[in-house]
Design a protein around this nucleic acid. Structure first.
Lengths: 192, 192
DNA sequence: CACTGGTTAGTGAATACTAACTAAGATAAT
DNA sequence: ATTATCTTAGTTAGTATTCACTAACCAGTG
């Protein structure tokens, strides 16, 4: 899908956004970070917009395993734990992701990018929704709470955790803190 | 604190960020939206950075009442409900806020702005933390869940709700949806 | 000898900000 | 009360810099 050079460009773009903000994502900065000239970039992407689209696609590819692994659990609560832990594992292994992935606002002014970003998010939410609803049917997850609220609490707290981790300068261990959060979420949603 | 013109500039800046993204927040765009010339802006703010600082201060001022009103309740659960509802009420009355206020990434490349934004957030979290901890002492809020996790679930779900509202084009009623979320949160944290 | 992936040199447009000037109103001196 | 001066908030016309992107050329590889 992406050539090696294209991958390098996308990774460099993410790095620049993470470290210096989207305002500093310029063709010149990407090129000089890689060590090639500006026009050389255009041999690999036809425009800056195409690079941004590729950034989102790259996220999608990288985060995919977090959605697949949860099928290995049968129990709904374990699936939810897996959903949380696997997402956080990938993010903590790709630290630059944290500053960029949940900042929809970064891409806000390009219709295409919003759509692409929304699709990615929605896919993720849909997976969690399915897990929750089947868990409620199986009487593993309490049914006196709206499933939409549960989704918002789970994904919302995950996202906030990542934001806090990123704003703190990655000062704490994301996976450990995620395990604690996941345990607390399980306690809260389980049928007693 | 802010002159009328300064207020108008700040409000226009928020409007532009909300509608066209931070990349389109230029002195020229602010000026022409207001109907004055670019240099006239510099009579009111010494630089673009000062305008962005003022944007954050403006948020702080506007959101302040949401933190004050919760003291009118005695019950901890009601305080939490008030925390959620009052925040959402202000945001739904200032729709442009939604796209900007929770996007820390927008201000990511200026040390001063990150600090200012973090302070604002932390103040808000501290208030909620106090409520939760005193609620746990009074046996109104369950103590088998880490208070930090509770904070993350409440604020995280609130933020996600606002993000979804904003990304959907404000298609649903934020306050109603917030009431539902708040009810579900109360159910989940109350001691039974 | 064509293709791939580089180069140098440049373009027009946009950006934050400045210089120099001005008209209207407030304040102060006579 | 009139005149002189200062301040405020605006203007037009610029500046240097940066931006995304292009033209034209070139060296190595199959």
């Amino acid at each position: 899908m992406f050539s090696e050079r294209q991958q390098q460009i996308v990774e460099t773009a993410i790095k620049i956004i993470a470290q210096r903000g989207i305002q500093n994502l310029t063709i010149k900065n990407i090129a000089s970070e890689i060590g090639i000239s500006e026009p050389a970039l255009y041999r690999h992407f036809s425009s800056k917009l195409e690079i941004l689209k590729a950034v989102i696609t790259y996220f999608q590819i990288k985060m995919q395993p977090a959605l697949e692994k949860l099928n290995r659990s049968i129990n709904s609560l374990n699936k939810i734990e897996s959903f949380i832990i696997e997402h956080l594992k990938i993010i903590s292994q790709n630290q630059d992701f944290a500053k960029v992935i949940f900042s929809e606002a970064n891409f806000q002014n390009e219709e295409n990018l919003i759509l692409k970003m929304n699709n990615m998010m929605n896919r993720s939410h849909k997976v969690l929704e399915t897990v929750i609803q089947s868990g409620q049917k199986n009487n593993e997850i309490r049914t006196d709470i709206n499933s939409l609220s549960l989704i918002r609490m789970i994904i919302g707290s995950m996202r906030l955790l990542v934001t806090q981790w990123s704003m703190s300068g990655m000062i704490f261990n994301l996976e450990n803190e995620g395990k604690q959060l996941s345990d607390d979420i399980k306690k809260i949603i389980v049928v007693k």
